[in-house]
Design a protein around this nucleic acid. Structure first.
Length: 211
DNA sequence: CTACCGATTGACT
DNA sequence: GTCAATCGGTAGA
């Protein structure tokens, strides 16, 4: 069921906010065989190349954010507090922008994710940017990797995973102190794994994407 | 070198 | 609801 994720270059093409929207409903899979862990992306945020004070690249290159300037399709992983956050770099080389993956719905490797997280309930595995990195085993070792070339981590579609039709909700980004008004957070309406304030959903959060 | 600070999480009132 | 632990990155002396 976790077989062959199809990753295509057009998936990461276009403006950062468009890519953030497009990544909803796509599969992210890390590892292979018995050690695979995977989920469906249900929440993202866009960090723009210009006029975005919340973007790590806003003040130019630093050792941490170099990957953000390496063009669409690179994986940008950084450490924050006691964990990691993973992003898909967007747009052309030199722009400095990315899409943060904030939440996924688990679909494969649940046992492995529970072990890595030290939690047993599904809702505690991947309902936040640092949680999902821990569940998937993503660290800064994967920073800078090219998603179009590697098999260590794959983001795309899978013919063996059926995705339910879904509505998208757009809100300001959360957890930041600058540029807090820009509507650059995208999430799957009513999906229980979305992080943050659940009252922003249109109804009960009981609608998994995996069917 | 020291000091400050998060694109967070989890424990607690 | 509030709040502190945590640690690598960053800026500044």
């Amino acid at each position: 069921m976790e077989s062959s994720i199809v990753t295509t270059q057009p998936l990461f093409r276009g403006t950062t906010d468009r890519v953030a929207r497009r990544l909803l409903g796509k599969i992210v899979a890390v590892g292979s065989g018995k050690q695979i862990a995977a989920g469906i992306i249900v929440e993202t945020e866009a960090y723009l190349p210009a006029n975005d004070e919340a973007c790590h690249a806003h003040s130019g290159r630093t050792p941490r954010n170099v990957t953000m300037f390496e063009g669409a399709g690179k994986l940008y992983v950084y450490s924050i507090h006691a964990g990691y956050c993973m992003n898909v770099v967007t747009e052309q080389e030199g722009n400095g922008c990315a899409v943060l993956i904030r939440a996924i719905e688990p679909v494969a490797g649940i046992k492995l994710m529970k072990k890595r997280r030290g939690k047993d309930r599904l809702i505690d595995l991947t309902s936040g940017p640092s949680k999902l990195c821990q569940a998937l085993g993503v660290t800064t070792k994967l920073d800078g990797i090219n998603l179009l070339e590697t098999k260590s981590i794959q983001i795309g579609t899978s013919s063996s995973i059926r995705i339910r039709k879904f509505d998208v909700v757009v809100t300001p980004r959360i957890g930041i102190s600058k540029a807090t008004e820009l509507p650059l957070r995208f999430f799957v309406d009513r999906n229980p794994y979305v992080s943050g304030l659940k009252r922003l959903h249109s109804g009960k959060t009981d609608r998994p994407l995996h069917v």
